[in-house]
Structure formats: structure tokens, C-alpha cells
Design a protein around this nucleic acid. Structure first.
Lengths: 230, 230
DNA sequence: CTTATAAATGAATGGTATTCATTTAGTGGT
DNA sequence: ACCACTAAATGAATACCATTCATTTATAAG
């Protein structure tokens, strides 16, 4: 059933992303980085990150697993393609269109929301050289430009962004945590202060406790970092 | 060479952690949760998290891989044991022994340092019910008690700790990032603002740029969250 | 001595990413 | 119209990996 080599030629397309091919190349390939990214995203949406295997990805593209390795060096490369695509979904539109505080707020919430649905990528981003991720780099350019215009001293811009980003990544995990994560269980009597604090928060009846913590931390960071401006 | 069942009986010990065994049990086991934790920690130290396989762990305990499954349900259980042990290494000594700001500062730096050497555990902690991690729970008790004594309203204690923790976990990743992670490479001309900001930080010549960002964010959080006290 | 049981074994199982020699099929030059 | 080149596909093989299971061993209790 695995179709003869060029049978599926008609499909996907989405070509022309970056990688200009040299002359003298056949046009038959079903695959390219764009198509692989799309396939991976679709697979993640349907089956989650556990379902994202090289075999499943190849299958969704009607291709043998080994064919993928003509286009990506490793599975990590696939994750990188996905990550960079996600960066383009982060909302940076408020930078340059209003006060710095509002822009950071909008950007941070959007950034957290995007990656809270893709937490398995966070360890990948953390050590990802931006060189390999053009969309991610574009996001940084817009954000750092917004910080500069807001009056940040140049040598503090990157550190401030990194601090915010660290908080954002950590908070993305919180969103996925089970509701009863802080239930002390049988140890409740041994931990009265913590147990009381957990109960008290629960009684507030917030829809999403993770949002309360995120808002609290974000506002603290915004006002604290905002004080660095000249 | 894989020794007859009870040959290594003399070893490890470290018994008595929680799991009281019922009467009528042989004493021959080389393994218990304490021994497994020690073995895993040693392996991580020597070979890193890639080297922590069930086979390698069993080998380091002079036991067959399948034997481990009499004591843990899965590899995730092993990671959990390790995580809980690490929680006991976090320095909470300053709570109750000085101003709240200093206690949080000391705790946060210590917390980040411990987990920056164990980042593969971060995704595990994030969704780990504290019930299964007594040492972790003990840490929370001390910290939340410190927040309470400092005058935090009860319903804000957990959210404040979560916000700090999120920042700490995200920052732990930064420590492990390669030095050139922000090198824009060939895209430098396309991203003048970001490139300038990166250069400017580099010229400051900080030993560990991650520490600058962490300090910046932590101080912002401390002063922002500190304002919640009654 | 018998019986029950925790704890060990080793052989399988099913899944994983990745490599490699080989084949296919377009493209440009002659 | 042929040829040489090469990107891109194949499928079989490799080396791990966590996990399961029927079986065996060794101790402790009655």
C-alpha cells in the first residue's frame, strides 16, 4: 500500500520556505519543511505529543519514515520547526501601539496561552539558538524594539525579556497541572499552614487558579521591570 | 555474573522510608525506595539523564531490570523519587529567621540552583500531586508558613508561591542554555534592535548572563508580591 | 515441616529513532 | 533523443528502550 515513489506528488505543496533548491532537481517530492511542519501540527492536534512519532508523521504524509531524514536531521528538528511556527502565533501587535505595560501584558498572556498547549516544546526552546528559528527571532525583534522605545537602557533589554520569558514558560506548565495538584492528602495535619492556604484559595472559587498566579506574577514583573526605564 | 537472588543482601539498607512492610516477609531484598533513589542519583551524576535507563539503574544495583518493578510502578516513579529528594536540598532555613524578603531570596536562588542541574525533572514536577512527594510538601509548609507570618492574606499565599515557582523553573532552564543562544547569525541586519540589545549585554561581560536575568526578575517579584502583605 | 509471600530472574513484547544501500524519476546540457 | 546528475523516495536492519509475565528463590510465620 505504501504508494510508489511519486504517486502522491499532487498533495501538500506549501513549498518555497527558505531552502532554495539548486537547479537540476526533480519536482516530485511530497515533502519539504513546510509540509512536515503542517503534518506535525496536525498530528499533535489529533494525537498529542505522544502521538508525534517519526513513523506516524511519515504515515500522515504518505511516505516512509526514512524519507523524512532527507529533510530533517532528527526528530528534534521537527520539534524545532513546530516551535518556530508557534512563535508566529504569539501576539506582539500591541508593541508600538500603546503604553509599554499594555503591550507586555498582551504579549505575555498570548505567549503563555500558545505554549500551555505545547509544553513538551519548552525544554526544546530553552536551549534553542535563535539562529535556527526565524519566526522566533522576529518576535524578539518586535519585543526588544518595544522595550527600547519605552526607554529601557539597552544593556537591560535582553535580561528583562529573559526574565519575563522564564516566568511565562514556567506558568505554561501550571495551566496543564491537575486541579488537585496541591491536595495534601493524608499529610494535611502535618502541614497546617500550607493546607489552610490551599483551602483558602479553593474557597475563592476561581475558574482557573493558574490565571490568578500568572496575573499576580506578571503584574509584579511589569511594575518592577518598568522601573528600569530611563 | 548476575548473582543468585540474595547474595548482595548486606548492601544498601536505607530502609524504613514510609512503606512499612507487613509481617511474614523475607528480608532479603537489595532494593527499596531509598536504595533506588540513591542509585538513580548516582547514575544521573555520572551519566546524566540520558544515562538513566531502567537497565542501567538495575545494573548499578546489581539486579535485573524487571526486579525494579516490584518497587516502582514505572520509570516516572523513579523520577518522582529523585524529585522529592531534591526538594529536601532546597534551602528554606531563612524562613522565620529574618525579613521575608531575604528568606524568599535565599530560597529562590537555592531552588533554582538545585533544579538547574536537573531540568529534565521540571516537566515531571509541574504535574506532580504533592501527596506523592512528602519532602516537597514539607518545603511548601515551611515556605507558606513564612508567607503567613510575613502578613500575606491567606488566599494569596499559594498563588504567590506558584508565581515565584514558575519563574524559578523557567529560570532553571536558562542556566543550561548555550552562551550563544541569542546570536542572531545571518539575520543580524534584519533584527537591528534585538541584535544591538544582545551586543550591549555581551559587552557588559557578565560571567553568567542567566544570573542577571534571574536577579532582575526575582527582585521585581519580591517587591511586587511584597506589596500584597497586610 | 508446611505454607505463604515478597522479591528476584530471564525471556519475551512492542515501540522508538535512526542508518544505509538501493531505486526512482525528474532536469539540464549536449 | 540521449546522458549524467542528483534530490528524494524506499524498505530492511539496528540498537535501544520501558514494560510484562511465567517462573523460581529464599525467607518468615504457624
Amino acid at each position: 500500500m505504501p504508494a510508489s515513489p511519486a504517486v502522491a506528488t499532487a498533495g501538500s505543496a506549501t513549498a518555497g520556505q527558505g531552502t532554495r533548491r539548486r537547479a537540476g532537481r526533480p519536482v516530485g517530492g511530497v515533502l519539504d519543511k513546510g509540509g512536515i511542519t503542517e503534518g506535525a501540527l496536525g498530528l499533535i492536534e489529533k494525537k498529542g505529543y505522544d502521538g508525534l512519532t517519526m513513523a506516524a508523521l511519515a504515515r500522515s504524509l504518505n511516505v516512509a519514515p526514512s524519507a523524512l531524514y532527507n529533510h530533517v536531521k532528527s526528530k528534534r528538528d521537527v520539534l524545532l520547526l513546530v516551535e518556530d511556527h508557534l512563535a508566529s502565533l504569539v501576539d506582539v501587535s500591541a508593541f508600538g501601539a500603546g503604553p509599554w505595560e499594555d503591550a507586555v501584558r498582551k504579549w505575555a498572556w498570548s505567549y503563555r496561552d500558545v505554549f500551555s498547549r505545547h509544553t513538551p516544546l519548552i525544554p526544546v526552546i530553552a536551549v534553542l539558538p535563535v539562529t535556527d528559528a526565524p519566526q522566533t527571532l522576529a518576535m524578539y525583534e518586535t519585543v526588544s524594539s518595544g522595550f527600547r522605545d519605552a526607554g529601557f537602557p539597552e544593556e537591560r533589554i535582553v535580561s528583562s525579556i529573559v526574565a519575563l520569558e522564564s516566568f511565562i514558560f514556567g506558568s505554561a506548565y501550571d495551566v496543564t497541572a491537575p486541579a488537585d495538584i496541591f491536595d495534601p492528602g493524608t499529610m494535611a495535619e502535618a502541614t497546617p499552614s500550607f493546607t489552610g492556604a490551599v483551602r483558602s484559595l479553593a474557597e475563592q472559587g476561581h475558574e482557573r487558579p493558574a490565571d490568578v498566579a500568572f496575573s499576580l506574577g506578571l503584574e509584579a514583573l511589569i511594575s518592577g521591570l518598568g522601573g528600569l526605564r530611563g
